[in-house]
Design a protein around this nucleic acid. Structure first.
Lengths: 194, 194, 194, 194
DNA sequence: AATGAATGAGACTTCATTCAT
DNA sequence: AATGAATGAAGTCTCATTCAT
């Protein structure tokens, strides 16, 4: 029998679940296999090693839609503000609703980036570059505060969203993602003042 | 000779360095000992086990000044906005400038909270409560946007600051903390729009 | 392949050998593994930890036949003296001939009992209770000296047998267990006087 | 200041107490020092190492009076039976009443003998030889059962006494050593039968 | 391709012993 | 002589990975 796509996905999903619960280092291969309903040995038919499983999680996450930010940033039929909102929507569309994925993303992202070869890091740099370009365009057009460095805006927004999502799925803060999205957009645009 | 405060601090500092470099799970006790300039066995004169070292890092971090938020929030001679800014200053004062501590804090906080008994979690809850009370007061006085849930503001700000600090020490984005602080305060107050 | 009964028994036997030679605390897991012909890690496929290995040795020893004393003591077709002799036979049948097991039993029994949860201790208490009931019955029927407290008789006999077996396998005192058994029975019944 | 006899004895006593509670291998030097009221380092002023402490315990035990068996066995003014009783009294006199010493003796004797150089082993062999000579004399004079091998009698009696004493101090079986001594003598002479 | 028992490198931790004070 | 912090060798146990079936 050829390698099974079903099985590969079962492992992928199980890994997200187990890693979200225990963290990457405490997530045991045996536990992932158990949750996936396969043997421990089978993990190695689909993945070269434990790191590879995490690699793939971030790769899938990337391919899911984040890559969509680049063409978005380049569009000329949208204003910078529309693009900024679309970028935020894009992050929400990818993550919101998937509790375990949010947790893995929030907890493992930094450590993941630290160890990883260029491949993913380059992806993320591209993403950031596109995000930055939207902000820069906004500043050029006089709609975004020109005194704020783009990197700071970028980091602050991404960090703010990440933690907000994480706390939402970790604590019990409801799951009305549509309203949350609105709040975050408002805060980004206008700040907290009245 | 009594237990040495110097040695205890050497270990503390070495642990922050090693954990910031490798992450908690890959940080080996032997490596921490080596960096601290003591034998592996000596670690156990000052700490009961590896977890205890991390516990202590967060405990020291907490005692350093975060606890200062509670009396701050209660002050009546300051406006909510002044308190909000003071709270942000407080976070910066604790973390800014200490590269390794920022990294440990950013990377280990979530996992740390997951495993910890009430002691630190309660501290953090108090901190968050004080932060929330400042925002709520601001909303009551009509200076903070009443449509934004306090928790969302709180998470977003704390997450934004965390990532901004982390990226700053991780990438090469200069280290002018005073200016960074100003940018972040501005963004929190007025958002990114002009 | 399912867990191997052969391997489990190889470890069991190797443990008895190594513990008999070095004593429990000086018996290294690595040595047990080596003697058993498996890797150190494999020990943990069959036993949760080192203590568990010793637990199991006593458990097997118990199940081997000591449990047989209880029904024996209850039999009504045997006189108390016949039961007493049968009890002694039972101990000999379990231990005699197995040099290493005798050594482990003699050396680790006390320390084992000290640490152990009720499970084995209860077994042993049952055993002792059955032994006592035989003696008490003998006293009631006027064949056993009524002036001797049952516990003292019981302790003395069991202690006497234990040391006799131990010295026999430890020194070079032959291995004619059948004759030894006879001597001991005679001594118990009639003492050392002519 | 010269080495203190008081301190040496405090350590000796503390060691007996701690070893009786935990067993030799789990008895920590630090704990012995604590109980003795000295520092851990001071143990090494009086003893070369941990083994030495146990050596000394058995040495003192030996010198206490067991050595008295040899002249006793050689006396010509006593009958073999009187000597046998005197030998049993001697063991009781040395051990009875000292709870911790009984426990240490019962638990560590075998392991101690296994590792020890000739010195103590030779002592014990002498002791056993003297005991045997009493029995042999008894057989020669027709008062001790000539069919029982001396070694078996010897082992059985010593093992019986050891366990009886141990159980007595370990369980709660009273502490009337005088009566216990009588029971044991009776059992040895006449057995359990009426 | 699937299994899961077996492997063994490596980590944490203990504790008898040392030695500077 | 006394102290007790420091040492580091050694031991138990874990778990990602392999491989015979």
């Amino acid at each position: 029998m050829a390698v099974s796509v079903d099985k590969e996905q079962a492992i992928h999903k199980a890994a997200i679940q187990v890693i979200s619960e225990y963290g990457f280092h405490k997530a045991k291969m045996a536990k992932i296999a158990e949750v996936a309903g396969v043997s421990a040995g089978s993990l190695y038919t689909y993945y070269s090693d434990k790191d590879h499983i995490l690699d793939r999680i971030f790769e899938v996450l990337w391919k899911k839609d984040w890559a969509g930010l680049m063409p978005l940033a380049a569009r000329e039929d949208l204003s910078p503000l529309e693009k900024l909102e679309a970028a935020i929507d894009l992050i929400f569309d990818v993550l919101a609703g998937d509790r375990n994925l949010i947790i893995v993303f929030a907890n493992e992202f930094n450590n993941f980036m630290k160890n990883k070869e260029v491949s993913f890091a380059r992806h993320y740099t591209e993403f950031q570059g596109a995000f930055l370009s939207i902000l820069t365009e906004g500043q050029a057009q006089g709609v975004v505060n020109p005194h704020l460095p783009g990197e700071v805006i970028c980091d602050f927004i991404l960090g703010g969203i990440r933690k907000t999502l994480y706390e939402r799925v970790t604590s019990d803060r409801g799951n009305d993602w549509a309203i949350l999205r609105t709040h975050i957009k408002a805060m980004i645009r206008r700040g907290v003042l009245v």
